[in-house]
Amino acid sequence: MISSVAERINYLLKKADFNTFILNDFSTKPTKFCFDLLARKGNLIIIIKVLQNIDNLNQDIINDIKSLSKILKSMPILIGIRNRYQKLEDHTIYMRESLPFIAIKTLENVLIKEEYPYILSKRGGGVIYIDGNLMKELRESKLISRKEMADKLDVAKRSVCAYENENMRASEKIAKKIKGILESSEIFRRINIFNSFKFDLDSEIIQSTAELPPFESHVQEILKDIGISTYWYKKGPIPFKLSLLSKLPNIQGQNSPYPLFSGVLEDQKNMNEFAFLSLEMFKELFNQNALFIVSNNVKISETSKASNIPIVSIKKLDKVDDEEEFIELIQRS
C-alpha cells in the first residue's frame, strides 16, 4: 500500500512541475530509508516519507528525517494513512515529534489546487487559525454584536474579543461554529506546509561507532581522526549511507565540498552499479556533492570511474592526516 501511495505522490509532484527522486526506482523491496521521495522545484526541496500509522513511529527514522532536512535545507512532509483511531482527515496537519503529517488528499489539494490546510491537530485536539480582522468585519456586516456572537458560540464575550484580536486560537469545534454563523470559510487562515514548521535538532549529530558494523565503524574512526563530523543513516544504503560535514567554519561556504553524501561498499568483488547510479542521480538532481567509500578489494568498473563522483578506497582514506588532505584526496579521485 505504501508503495502505491508513493507512486501516486510522485505523479502529483511531477504534475506540479517538481523534479523527483523516488526510491522505488532503485529497489524492488519496501524501503525502510528515511524518505520515499525527494522533490525539488527551484530552491524548494521537500523530503517525503509515507507512514502507515503516525502514532507508531520509528525514532531512528524520525531522527534521520530531521537530520537530512537540516543538511539539505529542506522541508519534510510526512504522509500518513491513519493514526491510532482513524484515517487521517483532509485539510488537517497532524503534529508528531515536531513534524507535520498530512493525508495524501491534503497534499493533492496543495499541489494541484494550491489549497492549503487550515486545521492544526496536536495530541489533545485541533485548533484553527482565524483571520481576526475578517471575522470582525463579517460579524459587523451581519449586525451581530460581540455579546450575541458569544451567546451563539456558547463562550464568554472576552473569548470573541480574543479570537478577533488573534490572541487566542479557536478549537476546531468553535471555529466551525463561527464559519457557520458568518457563512464563510475565508476566515480560516491557511497553513503553508512548506515554510511554517521548525524543529529542534542537536548540533552534535555524530552517531556512536558502537551502533555500526565493523567496516563502517572503521570508516567512522578514520573520518573522526581526520576531524570530520558524520551522520550515519540507520535504515538502508540507498542512495547514501552517511553525510559528512566540516567542523571548521573557514571551510564552509560557497566553494566548500560539504555537505558530502557518501555511499559505502564492503565485501563485494564488483562495484554496486545500482547503488552508484542512485547516488549519481541524487547528486545531479539536488546539486549536492557526493562520495563513494569502498573496501580495498572492490573492483571499480570503467563506467563508475568515468563518473564525477569520487571513489575512495579505505586504504587511501587511512593515509589522510587532516581535512585539507581529505579535500585534496576527493578532488583527485
Results as ranks from 00 to 15, higher is better:
V155F: 10
L37I: 15
M281G: 01
L153T: 14
L291E: 01
E280T: 08
K152N: 15
K14L: 04
D55A: 03
I205S: 00
A170D: 01
D60H: 04
T230Q: 12
L72A: 06
R158C: 02
K269D: 08
P117W: 08
P117N: 09
I327Q: 00
S304M: 11
F282N: 05
D64R: 09
D200N: 12
D36F: 07
A170T: 08
I93A: 00
D225Y: 02
V219Y: 00
E137G: 01
I79A: 14
E140Q: 14
L201E: 08
F188Y: 13
V294C: 00
I47F: 08
E97C: 04
M75S: 15
K73R: 13
P257Q: 10
V155N: 10
N255H: 11
I2N: 09
I178E: 09
H218R: 04
V160G: 04
K247Y: 12
S4R: 15
I251Q: 02
I309R: 10
T20D: 03
A6I: 10
T230L: 13
N192L: 08
G263I: 05
Y129E: 04
G125L: 11
Q268N: 03
N19C: 02
A290R: 04
D318T: 08
K14S: 01
I71A: 11
V50W: 05
N19S: 12
I226R: 04
A290W: 01
D318R: 07
Q254G: 01
S69W: 12
L277H: 12
E284N: 14
D60P: 01
I314M: 00
E323Q: 12
S4W: 05
I206G: 01
K32V: 12
K66M: 10
K316C: 00
R96S: 02
S256A: 04
F215S: 00
A103G: 05
I181L: 09
E7N: 15
I112S: 09
I309Y: 12
S229M: 15
R332K: 14
Y163T: 07
S196E: 10
V127F: 07
N83H: 06
K147E: 15
E323N: 02
S333G: 02
C161E: 03
S69K: 13
K234G: 02
I300V: 15
W232P: 02
T31N: 11
N308I: 06
T92R: 10
I104G: 01
A210H: 14
K234H: 11
R123G: 09
I9A: 06
S301L: 11
Q52L: 09
F286M: 07
N19R: 09
P249N: 09
I206N: 11
R189T: 06
N10M: 09
K234Q: 11
E115N: 15
K41H: 07
L23N: 03
E166R: 11
E115K: 14
S67D: 05
E115S: 12
S184T: 06
I112H: 11
A275D: 10
I309F: 07
F274Q: 09
P239N: 14
A16P: 01
S196H: 11
